[in-house]
């Protein structure tokens, strides 16, 4: 069954740049897929339309039965609760501890205190950071901070995890650790879409690879490597 269906998805920014130009895409539940492509090819813009940070100029994007492009501003939270999102720059709150940063995402749903605690600890355990719950983000390494961000993204058990260059700021070894965490999460049933420039990761995992070029799907391999495409 398809979790994501994009039809003719197009985004032209106010500046006149067409970042995504008629993307057709189907992604099944439980898939782990990479989105690759040159800088400025439209990967981030495509992902932004998945979580309704940008509205499509035309076309359609349906995720888990929700017509995301048609969501009104006041209803954006409905799709955000079904999707976990991870960025290159972690986006943690500096004044909150590791625990609070993750718990925050559960609290906003109005869960009971012990439920918040249970879910938070479970997520932090999954990313292997249960021993650092009292630390502040600036007391952690980049890899650890990214793991906190991942814990926050999955704490409410989303169907889909979107990662936009999650290893962009990390050294190869740490990147590999992060990807292992993502594989663990995927093996528990969460669909993962990861935009990346990291050749080694893509080649090592041998998963579906979608190559974006000038806002279009240029190639789509079910078991791809970075070397297939020659940029």
């Amino acid at each position: 069954m398809d979790l994501i269906r994009a039809r003719n998805l197009t985004k032209t920014y106010k500046t006149g740049t067409t970042a995504v130009a008629g993307v057709n895409l189907k992604i099944k539940k439980g898939e782990f897929c990479f989105i690759i492509g040159a800088s400025g090819s439209g990967k981030s813009t495509l992902m932004k339309m998945f979580y309704r940070e940008e509205k499509p100029t035309s076309g359609e994007i349906i995720i888990g039965g929700i017509n995301v492009g048609k969501l009104r501003n006041g209803n954006v939270y409905k799709i955000r609760r079904k999707i976990g999102i991870v960025f290159q720059d972690y986006k943690l709150l500096e004044k909150l501890t590791v625990f609070e940063n993750v718990a925050f995402a559960v609290e906003i749903l109005g869960e009971k205190k012990n439920e918040v605690r249970r879910k938070t600890l479970e997520a932090l355990e999954l990313v292997g950071l249960k021993h650092k719950i009292k630390s502040l983000p600036n007391q952690l390494s980049g890899g650890e901070q990214q793991r906190v961000a991942i814990a926050r993204a999955i704490v409410n058990g989303p169907k889909l995890l979107l990662c936009d260059e999650p290893t962009g700021n990390l050294d190869p070894d740490t990147s590999m650790e992060i990807v292992k965490v993502l594989e663990d999460i995927n093996s528990l049933g969460t669909t993962i879409i990861m935009a990346t420039h990291d050749r080694e990761i893509v080649n090592r995992l041998q998963r579906r690879v979608i190559l974006i070029d000038e806002g279009k799907v240029a190639k789509d391999f079910t078991k791809g490597t970075y070397d297939h495409e020659v940029i």
Binding site: R80, K91, L93, F104, A105, N156
Partner: peptide
């Protein structure tokens, strides 16, 4: 940042 992150993790506008 805080608001951006709240929106990101699915807090409603009212909240």
């Amino acid at each position: 940042r805080e608001i951006e992150i709240m929106r990101l993790v699915g807090a409603s506008n009212f909240f």
